[in-house]
Amino acid sequence: MKISYFPGCTLKTMAKNFEDSALASLSSLDIEMKEFKRWNCCGTVYSLTSDDLIHQVAPIRNLIRVKEEKDTRVVTLCSMCYNTLKRANKLVKEDSEKLDKLNNLMDREDVKYNGEVEVLHLLEILKNEVGFSQIAKKIKIPLKGLKVAPYYGCLLLRPPEVGIDDPERPTILKDFLGSVGAEAIDYPYETECCASYHTVVNVDLVVERAYDILNSAINRGAEAIVLSCPLCDFNLDNRQKEIKEKFSDFKGIPIFYFTQLLALSLGLDEKVCRFELNFVDPRPLLRSKHLIGEV
């Protein structure tokens, strides 16, 4: 299977561990992720005001690029990109007037967009096309004994019309964890917001929020967190430095992208996981569970 792939900015910079582990895993599952040409930043947040069409240009232009390459589906890894592309796409599919205006705004493009492209998140591909039961059959190193708390955050699930799962009781990450042999930890903060972009100007706010989320998971026995968004990752992983400064009792916990766990369980070379890019080094934990070799 071959599918058009939208990486978005952060996967090419800070979140190389996300991208590399994803690409390697998928190719081992016989899925070719074809990065389409000339993609641009999607804008990261979907514009919420009704008259603001200009900010819909960026996401829709990406969909035009996909269409130009004669593809009808595009997959993203980052939850924010997913949400922005999906919502923009939904908007133009449902509002032909806005679609016309957007096409006019982009009259230099060779093709017009008519809502032909479907936007997907990688987790949807794994669940619906590969199938978690298939993954379970293909894994070589079951992540036995690894207690992982799924963290969905906001944009994978909300608003419900673009969410990939039940916004209140999602199971997709839990099911994924099951397929790679890990134990999923249930805790009440899995869909609570991490304070998102406030991390730029209001670190304190993020620290409070991340502390609550991580502590809740730790208290329920989690040894690690798994997620799918580079911004959530930054807030829950890198901000542990500030959390520790503020809360002396905080123990720390490694954060994984779901694709890192996938690569690991598929028995791929540990290098594709790029664990050195994780802020809290997960390797001691993995070693203690004999999931990676000694140094």
Partner: peptide, 27 residues
């Protein structure tokens, strides 16, 4: 609400792009 020029170099190099772009979009 937030003047883009007031964000320090240090912060700029530290945070992921999506955080920066979204924060500027909102603020």
């Amino acid at each position: 609400y937030v003047n883009p020029l007031s964000i320090s170099k240090e912060v700029l190099s530290q945070v992921p792009q999506i955080a920066l772009v979204s924060s500027l979009r909102k603020f």
